[in-house]
């Protein structure tokens, strides 16, 4: 997309409100490049092509991730992965991956406009997610290097534990509901939105 294009993230309009004592601190990583990848785990060429383009191993273990730099590959299903990369990379990555995967039973789809990345930190980040998400979010059960798709109340999401919080990938159309829900649920802990 050209420089002149004015972009709006799904969470456009929400006010920053940095508060030091907040138990839940939300930060959006807007405009990341999101690519949905589907391919055959059993075909060695698939992992090879991904590795060649991204330098990343494909996480074949369910509900795990691989990361390097600002790129992360998430396991979504036995033949489905999500690549999240820095903004403005989607078209380039899509083309490169398509080329590398040509001839394979694989697909690459740009879904950058369809979802956004949110990070939740603070002493009550786990508590606030637990209010609506049925996953066991305890570090013994869900640690760095893992990911999981689940729901928060009625909002589908993809979760990844960070060293000091959680990363959440939310669908665009649900992001307003997600934000309102978190803001409400975080009321008892104090809530802050940072850039």
């Amino acid at each position: 997309m050209s420089e002149a294009v004015r972009l709006q993230s799904p969470l456009v309009g929400f006010q920053l409100d940095a508060r030091a004592d907040a138990g839940v601190i939300l930060r959006e990583r807007a405009f990341c490049s999101h690519l949905n990848l589907r391919g055959e785990q059993s075909d060695p060429a698939f992992a090879a092509a991904i590795k060649q383009v991204l330098g990343l191993e494909v996480p074949f273990t369910p509900n795990t991730t691989t990361s390097a730099g600002d790129q992360t590959l998430y396991w979504l299903g036995p033949d489905e992965w999500l690549l999240v990369a820095a903004p403005e990379q989607a078209a380039t990555l899509e083309a490169a991956l398509r080329k590398a995967l040509a001839g394979q039973f694989a697909s690459v789809v740009d879904i950058s406009g369809g979802q956004t990345v949110v990070e939740l930190r603070g002493g009550n980040a786990r508590d606030v997610l637990a209010k609506g998400c049925p996953l066991d979010l305890h570090p013994r059960a869900f640690g760095v290097g893992q990911c999981a798709q689940s729901h928060l109340a009625k909002c589908p999401l993809l979760l990844r534990p960070l060293a000091d919080g959680f990363e959440v990938v939310v669908r665009r159309s649900f992001s307003d509901y997600f934000f309102s829900w978190i803001e409400d649920a975080a009321q008892e802990y104090g809530f802050s939105v940072v850039s």
Partner: peptide
């Protein structure tokens, strides 16, 4: 619980909602 009002069910919005 908090399954009330605006939070009872997702309100999905398009990019042009604003």
């Amino acid at each position: 619980g908090r399954d009330l009002g605006e939070l009872f069910d997702p309100i999905r919005k398009t990019a042009l909602h604003g």
